[in-house]
Amino acid sequence: MAFGPFLLLATLEGLLQAAVLTLTALGLSLVFGVMRVVNVAHGEFYMLGAVVAWWVASMFSLHPAVGFFAALVISPLIVGAIAFASERLILKRLNYDPESTIVATIGMLYIIQQTVLLTYGPDARPVSAPFYYRIQLPWFGYSGYNLFVIAAAIVLLLAVWFVLSRTRLGLIMRATQFDREMAQAFGIPIERVYAFVFAAGAMLAAIAAVLIVPIRQAHYLMGLDPLLLSFIVVILGGLGSLRGTVIAALLIGLSDGIISVFFSPTLAKIISTLLVTLVLVFKPEGLFGAKAR
């Protein structure tokens, strides 16, 4: 294939990757930014979102779109509720100590993953896309649903941005992020904010998963990859910086497809992981984040 069309395909794929990654990483970033908790179980909330989506969609035997949109609403709610409960039962009791919460979320990772294995089983299961439309370009074909995912992610991102910057809720969250003690002194119920943020972070991962599950299947081990990628994005973008997260997700998503044209994909992963690690070591505020206070 000629280079031009090739680049177009890589870009489309990169945008799709970036769209899903932004939503997932945003959840991780939000939780870290506000609560200073590194949620290693984040990928499992993503997986849970996909599995619940399969479960919801398979209950509706009507048009696939009905099942899909039902899943888009129900799945994040269920995942959010589970995240809320685990925050209350586990993280709160640890007083959000950074190191203890990492260990605890590793434990949660295994608990969620293995419970899904016991109940849902080891198979990869597909969810039908709400619609099937194949766009035939002169050089290759592309799925119309993929473009829908990109559009949906942009709308959701705008919504998140609106909530964070234009509503009282966002103000409270930002205040908590900025200075926990001060916020408490001003009468902000820190604990409730934390529980809400943790649930919201998980819900963002779940929404990303529902969007992607018609393209990739629901499987109980699908959480690890998005977790590592989200880490990379959040580190590059600067821990806790939303704007940085979006830029970094675009960068990673787009470059991933293009780099692997020139290198073996494994080598590309090695290089990108190493680069990101070095960013964290030598520029811990990230490439796009503001300097830490």
């Binding site: 590194v38 950074p98 880490f231 494994t266 992963k269 690690t277 070591v281």
Partner: peptide, 28 residues
């Protein structure tokens, strides 16, 4: 020499990333 420039949470993530690089290197 590299990872000890960080502490706490960053050290965890840096070591995790290096671990991932080591794994990928073996498969490469």
């Amino acid at each position: 020499v590299i990872a000890l420039r960080t502490t706490g949470v960053a050290f965890m993530i840096v070591t995790m990333m290096f671990g991932q690089v080591a794994y990928l290197t073996i498969t490469y």
